[in-house]
């Protein structure tokens, strides 16, 4: 087992970050029999004495993490995104309510997860955790940004949920540019004054592709990697509202409650521009290859393109 080479999945970045964080003796890792999948196994291999295996028992894992956080540790607990949801009330009542700094990671988020089918494809995790007061919600788009944002959690004073993806995604950052990322601050990857595409996770590269297509027709699109869903970078959204004619959001997540909802909620107060949401409409996924599923669910660059065009027409 080794850290990934170029262009891994965001879960690989999480694993690499945990390895780097191990130099801080307060850091502990908790697993629920999916360490090989979430990549916390890298930490386990190097630091077995600070890794706690809790078996297939997520509710217990979350409260064990809370107990450790109350005793001076900085726990990083992970499982599949969908199985963190089994412990949602534990996160709400046992972690966030007393303000204990536990960092929870849900890998295999979204329908991009693929052939495992709908039981493994969380399309509601971002919505759920976003409702909890004081909770930070992160969804990086590639391995390098995932590594950087996870490293930053070491000094983060609030509980957090990070969603990573199972499958590889194109790199949006290099070793240098990812260092400029900051939790809570959206990252502008491309600038244009006609439309702003705000995306997260695997949809960021789709947004870039849509922007490239739009430029062929002379339409300028700003693309933002909104890696932090909460707290939302409302300053940046206000700037986009001033500069562009409309906003399209893109996420591998239900359109109910996720990034699109968060952006819309903010703009509903400030007013300004029309918004279109690209995301999973109110339905479950199924087995299939990631690309096939993105086609089926209507979350490809073509869907972003259509939304941009309809918004500008």
């Amino acid at each position: 087992m080794s850290a990934p080479s170029a262009g891994g999945a965001s879960r690989d970045g999480y694993g690499s970050a945990l390895l780097r964080l191990a130099s801080d003796p307060r850091v502990v890792v908790l697993e629920a029999d999916l360490g090989k999948s979430t990549k916390s196994c890298l930490f386990r291999e190097a630091n077995p004495e600070r890794t706690v295996s809790l078996g297939i028992a997520e509710q217990n894992m979350i409260l064990v993490a809370a107990g450790m956080a109350s005793s001076g540790k900085i726990p990083f607990a992970s499982t599949f995104a969908i199985f963190t949801e089994r412990g949602f009330e534990q996160v709400r009542n046992g972690v966030a309510r007393p303000g204990l700094v536990v960092h929870l990671c849900g890998s295999h988020g979204g329908i991009h997860t693929g052939t495992d089918g709908s039981s493994a494809q969380s399309i509601e995790d971002l919505a759920l955790y976003r409702t909890i007061p004081g909770m930070t919600v992160i969804h990086p788009c590639d391995d390098l940004s995932s590594e950087e944002l996870t490293i930053q959690l070491l000094d983060h004073d609030k509980p957090s949920y990070t969603r990573t993806a199972r499958n590889k995604t194109p790199r949006m950052y290099d070793e240098e540019s990812c260092k400029k990322l900051k939790i809570g601050k959206g990252s502008k990857l491309r600038e244009g004054s006609d439309v702003a595409i705000i995306a997260c996770g695997v949809m960021v590269s789709e947004a870039i592709r849509a922007a490239e297509e739009l430029s062929k027709d002379g339409i300028g699109a700003t693309v933002v990697d909104m890696h932090t869903i909460k707290p939302l970078d409302t300053e940046l959204i206000d700037e986009l509202v001033r500069e562009c004619k409309g906003i399209v959001t893109a996420e591998d997540h239900s359109v109910i409650g996720g990034l699109g909802s968060a952006v819309s909620e903010h703009v509903s107060y400030t007013g300004g521009v029309p918004i279109r949401m690209v995301g999973v409409t109110d339905r479950f996924g199924e087995s299939g290859e990631p690309g096939e599923l993105m086609d089926l669910m209507g979350i490809t660059y073509r869907d972003i393109l259509d939304s941009c065009n309809s918004l500008l027409s």
Binding site: V28, V52, Q59, N60, M61, I62, L63, V64, A65, A66, G67, M68, A69, S70, S71, G72, K73, P75, E89, Q90, N93, G94, R97, P98, G99
Partner: peptide, 28 residues
């Protein structure tokens, strides 16, 4: 609720969680 009261070590109210929390304290 540990957030409110000096001397309280756990925020309870939802049953079944305390032993897990205690296990975390013991492991730490």
């Amino acid at each position: 609720d540990m957030k409110w009261t000096n001397g309280v070590d756990f925020s309870a109210g939802s049953l079944g969680m305390g032993l897990s929390f205690g296990l975390g304290c013991a492991l730490a």
